[in-house]
């Protein structure tokens, strides 16, 4: 595989993993019975989710622009 293809797939994978992990594990737990249910487990977890979205879609730009 070409280097640009590998980087592209890595970016997509990293983006998706960030999305999944931050959504299911780092964000606010799915409950509403305690104070902890109002705070994300990791600060700025939603920003990590959004970062994942941005990285995943940036891979398209990289792939299009990259020189082999």
């Amino acid at each position: 595989m070409k280097r640009s293809t590998i980087v592209t797939w890595t970016m997509i994978a990293v983006g998706v993993v960030l999305m999944v992990v931050s959504y299911f594990f780092l964000a606010t737990p799915w409950c509403n019975t305690a104070v902890e249910c109002s705070n994300p487990r990791v600060p700025f977890a939603p920003a990590i989710f959004v970062l994942g979205v941005l990285i995943a879609f940036s891979s398209a730009v990289y792939y299009a622009v990259a020189k082999d």
């Binding site: 606010t28 509403n32 019975t33 305690a34 104070v35 249910c37 109002s38």
Partner: peptide, 19 residues
């Protein structure tokens, strides 16, 4: 409410339920 709709929909967790 123990199953409060306001707590569920709050986008930032500013509305919260204590134990």
């Amino acid at each position: 409410c123990n199953n409060a709709p306001c707590v569920k929909v709050c986008p930032t967790g500013a509305r919260y339920k204590r134990e």
